[in-house]
Structures are given as C-alpha cells and as structure tokens.
Simulated scan of single mutants.
Amino acid sequence: MNNIDESQVILVDIGNTRIKYSLLSHAEDEPSACEDAKSLFFFIDSQQKISHLYIASVRNQDLVDEISTMCDARNIIFVEKQTEQEAFGIKNSYANVQKMGVDRWLAMICAAEKSKNAFFVMDVGTAITVDFVVDGQHLGGWIIPGFQVMRNALVASTQKVFANDEIPTTFGVGTDTEDCVASGCHAALYGVYLSAVDYISSKRTEFDIILGGGDKKVFAFLKSADNMRLAHLVMQGLARYARCELLK
C-alpha cells in the first residue's frame, strides 16, 4: 500500500453543522468546509486522482450513505471510521463503545500522538467534549452545551434577555444585557476548562492540554502554556488512521 501518495487521500469530518475536509497531505492545516455532498465532490473531482476517502460522522447515516455511493461511482475506496475499544495505545472506558461519538474517539487518537503525558482533550464546537486519558487509559469525559447552544437556550427560555452573535475572545464582564449573556456563557466555558485542569491535576502533576474545534477561539484569552497544544482533532485523528493503514 505504500505507493499511495498522501495527496490521493481525502479526509472528511461530518460534524453537527458542517462538512469539513482536507487532503491527507494537508491534515495539519485549517480544513476546508462545505454544506453538502455535491460541494464536497466538486472539490474531489477537481483533484488529479483521489483513491481513498476516510470519513467520520456524528450526523445521521443518510449523508454518509450518499457520499459512499458517490465514491463507488468514482472507484474511490470508502472507509468510515467508528469508535473502537482500543487503538494506538488508547483504551476506551465505555462498555459499549458505539455510544461514544466517533469525534471524541478521534480527538483522543489525535491527542495521544501529540502528548506523551497524561492529557485532556477539549473539542469546542456545537457541543463541548472533554476526555481524560492517563497512561493510555481513557478515564471518562464530559459533554457540555457549546457557546452558541448555551446562549440560544438562554434567550429562548427567557422573555427579557437578549443576545448578539458575538463570541468573546477576551475574558471579562458585560455592561449591557447582550454583553452579559456573552460574557456569562464565556465564563461558563472557562469554568469547564478550569474544572478539567483541576480534575487532571488530581491524577497527574504533569499533563498536557489538547484544544480544538471550530469555536476554540473562545479560549483565545488564555496565554498558550507550554503544556497546551492546538489541533484539528477529528481531521488529525483520521489522518493517523489513514497513515497507519495505507502508508506503513
């Protein structure tokens, strides 16, 4: 298999809101995004020769099946990754691994490549997921409403509370209702981060923090510590599988 070039492999991450994609050769770069399979294949068809498509999805199966059918029509080998009990030295804590979203599993696979210490990996998107790994053992994790879900739920549940579309990148307090909502949701997310630091600190004195997701800019106010790494979690988790299976 080692005659496959990384530019012949495309990685596809179907999240809750968008489809993100990247060539394996560009897995460390910011991924591109589109809304539907037609747009995805407009890019695929523009490439010289895509031989493999690696995909992970947290959405319903219909879109995955559509992409699989379009791959078949082009003789592209279609590989969908699922959550596993163990891979790359990571042992899953879930008794039923199919109950864990593949995005969380791939985030851990990505993070484990970037850290030789204990770590927690935090994916900041529509939902925020946090997972803790010590000595290769997944201890468990958290799932929290993301910034926009939290803000929208607050506005929908109250009559005189309003919000704007701004996502804070500096930490502070608000001086009008819209700013108070944004700052309050921001503070709640920061509380999750601090709780994660507190929890991993109770297990190991040395640990790393792997941070990713489309809304990770909400933590831009943090000074990037020596033990913090930024990553395109799902994409780089898929890349690790693809390189292992195709190139070695």
Rank of each mutant, 00 (worst) to 15 (best):
G136Y: 07
F78R: 03
T69H: 15
G191L: 00
C71P: 02
T17L: 12
T17F: 12
N2R: 14
V130R: 03
M228R: 02
G213M: 04
S7C: 13
R74G: 13
E178L: 07
D65C: 11
R74V: 14
F120H: 03
V133S: 00
L189D: 02
I77M: 12
A239W: 00
V9D: 06
I4Y: 12
S7R: 14
I90Y: 01
L11S: 08
L24Q: 08
K116H: 11
R243Q: 15
I4T: 04
V134I: 09
Y21Q: 05
A239R: 12
F42N: 09
G141L: 04
V234N: 00
F88G: 03
A95Y: 15
L11H: 09
I109D: 00
R229E: 04
Q236L: 12
F162K: 11
Q159W: 01
F162M: 02
D208H: 00
Y193K: 01
K160S: 14
A188W: 08
I14T: 06
K99R: 15
I55H: 07
M122Y: 07
H186K: 03
D179L: 11
Q85Y: 13
M108N: 04
A112I: 07
V102K: 00
F219E: 02
P145T: 10
V58C: 10
I210K: 05
Y241W: 15
N117F: 01
M100G: 04
G212S: 12
L11G: 01
L247G: 04
A242V: 05
D226Q: 10
A56E: 04
A188Y: 05
T17W: 12
M1N: 13
T177Y: 09
E84P: 06
E166I: 14
D165F: 05
D179C: 10
Q8H: 03
L23A: 02
N3E: 15
S68D: 11
T177M: 04
A37I: 10
D135Y: 04
S195A: 14
N96E: 14
V149A: 15
D65E: 15
G140K: 01
A73G: 03
E178C: 12
V79K: 14
H186E: 04
V9I: 11
D135Q: 12
V97W: 04
D135H: 08
R18E: 11
A127C: 08
D45C: 10
I90G: 06
L238R: 06
N16H: 11
F162R: 10
A73N: 15
Y190N: 13
H186W: 03
D179A: 15
Y193G: 04
P31E: 12
L40A: 10
L233M: 02
A239F: 02
G172D: 10
K49Y: 06
E166K: 14
A118I: 00
Q82D: 10
I200T: 01
H26D: 15
E113S: 15
A220G: 13
S224M: 12
K91G: 01
G89S: 08
F120D: 00
F162Y: 13
Y94S: 02
G174I: 05
K223M: 09
I109H: 00
I109Y: 01
A182R: 13
G136F: 03
M100D: 02
A242W: 01
E178N: 15
I210Q: 02
V218D: 00
D123Q: 04
D62H: 14
R240D: 08
M100V: 01
T169C: 09
R240Y: 07
M122H: 06
F88C: 03
A220P: 08
T17I: 08
A242G: 09
R104Q: 09
F43I: 10
G15K: 06
L211M: 07
D179P: 02
P168I: 06
